[in-house]
């Protein structure tokens, strides 16, 4: 099976607040640095890339944000319009359909349609022969996927539609999307976790459901924001001794060190738990002591990703 960055499509997924957006962009930087023409896709109106690269809102455009690296924020309504044009081929027909009352109602009310057309657009971006006119091929598409809870439902949409529409164009296209995202040679998955109880549990159950319910293989799990091991157990004992005698800033510093030691120990436990709970290889990423993540710190993170 190809390495993660040698696939055509990579989904970065995990619980909310674990750093999926950061890692998606860092993975994008890593792939771009290897000379791959890469695009990072955000969904659900996210605009992390525009903030990190200090751009105006990117929106539904493929925008070059760094050398070899593009970004897009996928809007379902625009994806749907684009899809309809590809299907109907004639712009006037598409516009007439989009203006009709029936269509508008169905488009707004059909459950799961937004997710389906979003995955449809992701698929289109990942094709060697792009369907969209004058669009150029990407070597790699990285998707900053929705937080789990919504995440599995999101990736399951193509299969659900393939089942519901037993025959016809939607069935065929949904089947093709499902086939593409479950093909381990073309599509990879990276789960992002944190060294805490809940994210570790959720990563393990996410890996299970991706495999059992959708048939996607997880390539790796990133344990994000792991503290450096600054103090040994004997250091900690020495610090405990010193704490009673300390005052002022020195006392605060000793306390901060002891806290760090305890957190670090609890992080190691969670790291062990994660390694036992998931089948995929686990890679740890350092906690970045930066008030606000910038491009240089993301580049540093990119180096640790592969």
């Amino acid at each position: 099976m190809p390495e993660l960055l040698d696939k055509r499509l990579v989904f970065v997924t995990g619980k909310g607040g674990v750093g999926k957006s950061t890692i998606s962009i860092a993975l994008g930087l890593a792939a771009a640095a290897r000379g791959k023409r890469t695009i990072v896709c955000e969904v659900g109106g996210q605009e992390t890339a525009s903030r990190v690269f200090r751009r105006a809102e990117i929106g539904f455009h493929e925008v070059e944000v760094a050398e070899n690296l593009w970004a897009i924020s996928i809007d379902p309504d625009q994806s749907l319009r684009e899809y309809l044009l590809l299907q109907l081929k004639v712009r006037a027909m598409r516009d007439m359909l989009v203006r009709s009352r029936i269509f508008n109602y169905l488009a707004a009310a059909t459950p799961g349609l937004k997710e389906l057309v979003t995955i449809g657009k992701i698929w289109e971006l990942a094709q060697p022969n792009r369907r969209v006119k004058k669009a150029e091929e990407y070597d790699l598409v990285i998707v900053d996927a929705p937080a789990t809870g919504h995440g599995i439902g999101f990736l399951q949409t193509p299969r659900t539609f393939a089942n519901i529409a037993r025959v016809g164009p939607v069935h065929n296209q949904a089947t093709e999307l499902d086939r593409f995202i479950t093909d381990h040679d073309t599509t990879g998955v990276a789960i992002v976790s944190l060294p805490e109880e809940m994210p570790v549990n959720e990563s393990a159950s996410l890996e299970d459901s991706l495999r059992d319910e959708i048939g996607m293989a997880v390539d790796r799990v990133y344990m994000n924001a792991v503290y450096p091991e600054r103090f040994s157990t004997s250091d900690a004992e020495q610090l405990e001794d010193g704490l009673d005698r300390a005052d002022g800033a020195a006392r605060a510093a000793v306390r901060a060190a002891l806290s760090e030691h305890r957190r670090c120990r609890s992080q190691r436990e969670q790291l062990q738990r994660l390694k036992q709970a998931v089948a995929s290889p686990v890679k740890t990423l350092p906690f970045i002591f930066k008030p606000q993540l910038d491009v240089p710190s993301l580049e540093r993170l990119a180096g640790a990703l592969v």
Partner: peptide
């Protein structure tokens, strides 16, 4: 609409 979605 039928052309896009299929009748079914």
């Amino acid at each position: 609409l039928k052309r896009v979605t299929g009748l079914d």
